[in-house]
Simulated assay, not measured.
Amino acid sequence: MGKPVEPLNIGIVGCGFIIGAYLETFPKLDAVRLVAVADLDRARADAVAAEHPGVRSLSVDELMADDEVQLVLNLTIPAAHAEVALRALAAGKQVYGEKPLAANSEQAATILEAAAEAGLTIGCAPDTVLGTGTQTARRAIDDGLIGKPISATATMMTPGHERWHPNPDFYYLPGGGPLLDMGPYYVSALINLLGPVASVIGAASHTRDSRTIGSGPREGETIPVSTDTHVTGVLVHESGALSTLVMSFDAVATKASNIEIHGETGSLIVPDPNRFEGDVQLRSLGSDDWETLPVSAGYVDASRGIGIQDLALTEPGAEPRASAQLAFHSLEVMESVLRSAHSGQSITISSTCARPEAVPLTELSVHA
């Protein structure tokens, strides 16, 4: 990787809740520069621009046509991800999107095809896997501290987002549910740790037909549930390792680790893949205790948006670590788990991706 002479100019489409996390990160990054924002609600874009000197508020059409914008950060709702990405690519701009890459793998495939035809780079969240938590675990595996990896478990248990989210309807509609909502963090981490997935088999359940909103102006309102709310899958990695994935909106709590990796000579506890940092613990064969490993890899003090910095520093022709190919493969894996849950059949994954390059221990350079 080499540092660009000038920062990559970013234009954001979508000024909803998630933009705040990116706006906090950009001042830490010396390889990117925010120059413009746009939203269908122009007032929201105006408000962001007013608080950030040098950032212009534009319409979506104006932002797509603006020659200063080199990369479009797509923070729209998932249903609009494909449309916005395709418009940006058609305008000759690189794209980095919030997860998922698109609402489904068919739409995501059109994005990959358009980018290849245009010779443009696409990146996609989650970029949490680039932080010191997952990357220190990756370093431990690559250094042979657990021997040959055999299996993994990845667990996310919660009673459901309706307890805290004021408008949780979409979590319980087709395209929602615990796997498609939170799974990208876990599946992306497992691919970074163990490599791409060859096949899956899944099972799922739907325990309640309605949920009650627990906060906000709609508190007490009942909403329908029309998607699976507890999903279990077994991912067979190309390496032969087996990952067991459990994603639930039906459980009260769990003491299980977010991710555990087990090898022939040791086991690792990997921190929450929805976070950038956290302790990695190792228990070696014959040891009576877990030891906390020193931080040895990853972007230090990273936060949402570090994937854009990584993209900006990627050599031309190479894939960024938070790549669209990884996002596409993860999406197909999750969709296939759900299809398998209803068919009862193992499903072969048609796509693959390179295991992303490891991140060496890297301090961020703050803008002067």
Rank of each mutant, 00 (worst) to 15 (best):
E264P: 15
G240R: 08
C15T: 11
M247E: 11
Y186S: 08
F328D: 01
Y186T: 09
G133A: 06
P360H: 00
L242S: 04
R304W: 03
T136L: 09
P78N: 00
G11M: 05
A49C: 04
I269C: 08
S248I: 06
P166M: 00
G317E: 07
L313P: 09
L194G: 09
G119Q: 13
T207L: 11
Y172F: 15
A198S: 14
I77T: 15
T153L: 03
L89R: 07
R321M: 07
V252G: 07
L311E: 05
L89I: 15
G54D: 01
E332F: 09
P273S: 00
K93F: 02
G175P: 15
G11C: 03
A125T: 06
L180S: 03
C353F: 08
A102Y: 11
A116K: 15
V366W: 08
L245Y: 04
F328H: 06
H342R: 02
V359I: 15
H329N: 10
G2P: 04
T229W: 10
N192D: 00
P356S: 04
A38F: 02
Q94C: 07
G307L: 07
A115H: 15
R218K: 09
L112G: 12
G263S: 05
P166Q: 00
E260F: 00
H262Q: 06
A79G: 05
Y22C: 02
S330M: 11
Q345W: 07
G11S: 03
E68H: 03
S351C: 08
I12Q: 00
I111Y: 12
I213G: 13
A327F: 12
F17R: 13
Q309I: 01
D127H: 05
V129R: 04
A241E: 08
E106N: 10
K3M: 07
V60N: 10
P217N: 01
R208P: 06
A189R: 05
G240Q: 03
L338P: 13
E6I: 11
I349S: 09
E113N: 13
I213Q: 02
E335F: 06
D30Q: 05
G144F: 14
Y186C: 10
R218W: 08
S350T: 11
T227N: 02
W290Y: 09
G214D: 07
S239H: 11
A318M: 12
A140T: 12
T132K: 06
S151V: 06
A80G: 01
V280M: 05
P360V: 00
H367C: 04
P217I: 02
A79Q: 12
T348D: 15
I223D: 03
R87V: 01
R56A: 07
A203K: 14
D181I: 11
I10L: 12
T229D: 09
G2Q: 02
V300P: 14
D46N: 13
C353G: 09
Y22A: 00
V200P: 14
T348W: 06
D61M: 04
